[in-house]
Write a protein that binds this DNA or RNA. Structure first.
Lengths: 243, 243
DNA sequence: GAGTGGTCTAGACCACCCC
DNA sequence: GGGTGGTCTAGACCACTCG
């Protein structure tokens, strides 16, 4: 009798994928660098090219690698393009996607609150760094944003001058700290603008805002960033494709 | 000189996929029925099994067919499961997904408004059928919903008794009218409850609501249904996965 | 046991990129 | 021209389902 809940067998290409992801996570191939060719990898693992190919195809679907015909396979880089299409879902009424500018209000360290510990699964007393900023689209303040990361993962972040906190954070996290955000979940609600939000966004208190609660995960599926964004949806909307 | 904008070449498996989708759209294989085996299809098109397999894999990703090892490949059926996971994104604060009940308020025909013509790309004067309903979760009214479909696609819908307008409409559209909803886009905004919405949802006028504007497309990517849902997000949230 | 989809292999050829 | 990923084939074997 075998345990019916245990996996009966694991396809080779999944095992290969696991091994490749592990090497990727260990930074053996830094973002943007080329992986060995499919044939070389296949020889290394002593499997056929088709098996490696299937593993890479799965990894490409998860945005872990990029492949270009005639060039090779590359460790994914967190480009602005990717921030825009994978992570930023606000579009203007004219159906244009555009990355917002940021005005950083504060960037400080502290001790994780219960809510932060819960979201990021941290121990009591863990130090965290918090960023507050307002993001603008077409010159209008549209998003009031507040995010938390564990300080240990991003040392020194809290002591940067506010002007030197970059706009596209995930690109920065990757380049500066080797932390790759590859996946996220979002929870959306309608809320009423608080006094602070009203002031930051230039709207009346109580104006309906779209609150986005995001948890961002790294390549090992560990929570890395918790973010709350309050969006003024008078001239923009949150776009989602159901497929 | 070839036109650089024209496709240089089309992979075989894509051509096969196009042919299979066409046969599926023509109702040659009604929802739930079995397609011929991969080997039979391959012989029919005079290609290898691997090529048919690649076409079917792509179709499975688009929820057009379901494949089960040892059983066969089946034309996709619009199950409640699918309504729940692909199309219904509200979850309770306890992180439970559950399909809502519906109380139909009205179901009538009329002439398409400018907004409806625009959303569904209809000609002026086209008859449409509109349904208004309130949807409940855990006994609480949570969604005020209003949707429009072209009458020609769903004849007789407008003259059904209100109690006989089914809860899971996409399942019904498919079973009764042969219209398969396979894809949709949603636009989300925060709005303030109008008098009507406040009454239907049992909230105060001006309460922030999550407005979801959905356009649902059929297998040929033609717009079929336009739906506006106003959700009370005090005890539920809209869930989205970014990958 | 017969039939189905799923995996794996090996090899050929094609489209693309860069030197 | 040589290297890369992308397609296509043919055949073997495995895992699952059903009668």
């Amino acid at each position: 009798m075998t345990d019916p809940a245990s996996p009966r067998y694991a396809p080779l290409y999944q095992q290969i994928k696991t091994l490749l992801v592990r090497r990727l996570a260990s930074n053996e191939w830094p973002p943007g660098s080329a992986l060995p060719s499919e044939i070389a990898l296949a020889q290394g693992y002593n499997v056929s090219q088709g098996t490696v190919r299937k593993a890479l195809t799965a990894m490409e679907k998860e945005h872990l690698v990029e492949r270009r015909q005639g060039r090779g396979t590359f460790a994914a880089r967190h480009s602005q393009q990717r921030s825009l299409f994978q992570f930023f879902h606000l579009m203007s009424d004219a159906n244009e996607r555009q990355l917002p500018d940021s005005r950083v209000i504060s960037c400080r360290s502290g001790t994780a609150t219960a809510a932060e510990r819960n979201a990021l699964t941290l121990e009591a007393g863990t130090p965290v760094t918090r960023i507050r900023r307002v993001r603008q689209l077409d010159g209008r303040p549209v998003i009031s944003e507040s995010l938390t990361v564990p300080t240990t993962l991003f040392p020194g972040l809290e002591s940067r001058p506010l002007e030197q906190v970059p706009n596209t954070l995930y690109e920065f996290f990757e380049a500066e700290y080797g932390v790759m955000i590859v996946h996220a979940t979002e929870r959306l609600r309608a809320t009423a603008a608080t006094t602070t939000e009203a002031e930051l966004l230039g709207v009346d208190i109580g104006t309906p805002l779209l609150a986005i609660d995001r948890l961002a995960l790294n390549i090992e599926n560990r929570p890395v960033e918790w973010r709350e964004s309050c969006c003024h949806t008078a001239h923009h909307y949150y776009f989602n494709e159901l497929d």
